[in-house]
């Protein structure tokens, strides 16, 4: 199918892009990789009158390190993110999770910023950004502001981004030593969106968990931090069932929806099982090769 007609704008600078978004108002959409937007246009589920293509704006792509922070340009493709040596070295969780997004061809075009700004609760990266405590840099007519990932997502497909704002950077704190991470994704076929996903960062001191951050995918209209699990894990041994006991809290504070993929009670159940597995893998007490994946 063919999208409805629209105007196409290709600003050369951030300022031009922001101006274009301001001028065109509600009916303008940012086009980065287009991997979520173009299918919606084709199905005519979205019909913006203008697309503002930010993909050629200088400085929106690439990864660099600034002190204890990885700075990732919002228009950096998934493929660039997951292969970038700085990411694989300092933030393997992000590389692993990005590698589960869609498929290689989509990852060549789709961007990290786009996946966050689209704010699909079934998307893998919002929960990962929340668990990583990433900071998102938004540029608008009045300048830049920085928003923690945990405050960026407002509702289903909705963020704090204003109509004339642009997500320009994702700043990911580089974890110190002792951290292990894992993203556990559960879906029915390779191409399907996550029914539930769990991003886990676990810091160990010997056998004791000293810090934990858990982000849940698709357990509500926005990504959720599993705070009760994090709390329960603190000071727990990675052996002797402490992780399993903590993981039982995974569904607390979540509001999963019922849809074609799963009913809420099943999602809550999965959150508990997958949280246990993700934490065990992050803590290094469980193999990374999941014996059961298909079906």
């Amino acid at each position: 199918m063919i999208p409805a007609p629209f105007d196409y704008l290709r600003p050369a600078t951030r300022a031009e892009a922001i101006a274009a978004l301001r001028d065109r108002g509600e009916d303008a959409k940012v086009l980065a990789g287009g991997q979520s937007l173009i299918p919606l246009l084709r199905l005519r589920l979205a019909a913006p009158t203008a697309l503002v293509d930010i993909s050629r704006i200088e400085g929106l792509r690439g990864v660099h390190r600034a002190g204890d922070t990885l700075v990732i340009g919002a228009a950096t493709s998934h493929d660039e993110v997951l292969r970038h040596p700085l990411v694989t070295e300092h933030c393997p969780l992000l590389a692993q999770a990005v590698g589960t997004v869609a498929d290689p061809a989509v990852r060549h075009r789709g961007t990290l910023g786009g996946a966050l700004a689209h704010a699909d609760p079934a998307g893998d990266l919002p929960a990962v950004a929340v668990a990583l405590e990433a900071q998102l840099v938004l540029a608008g007519p009045a300048g830049e502001r920085t928003v923690p990932a945990g405050e960026f997502f407002v509702d289903y497909l909705e963020t704090v981004l204003q109509q004339d704002e642009l997500l320009t950077e994702i700043r990911v704190p580089v974890p110190g030593t002792g951290w292990g991470t894992h993203y556990e994704k559960f879906h029915r076929v390779a191409q399907a969106w996550a029914i539930v996903g769990v991003a886990a960062l676990i810091r160990r001191d010997g056998d004791t968990i000293t810090d934990a951050r858990i982000g849940l995918t698709n357990m509500g209209p926005t990504p959720v931090r599993a705070r009760a699990v994090e709390q329960a894990l603190l000071g727990t041994s990675v052996h002797n069932g402490g992780i399993a006991a903590a993981a039982e809290y995974a569904a607390e504070g979540t509001a999963p929806t019922g849809d074609l993929a799963a009913q809420p009670d099943y999602r809550r159940h999965l959150a508990r099982v997958l949280t246990r597995r993700a934490v065990e893998r992050a803590a290094g007490t469980r193999g990374t090769a999941e014996p059961v994946t298909a079906g």
């Binding site: 559960f186 099982v273 059961v292 298909a294 079906g295």
Partner: peptide, 12 residues
């Protein structure tokens, strides 16, 4: 088949 009795997932 392997059936994961925790999640219900089936692997051939």
């Amino acid at each position: 088949t392997e059936v994961d009795t925790e999640t219900g997932a089936v692997r051939l």
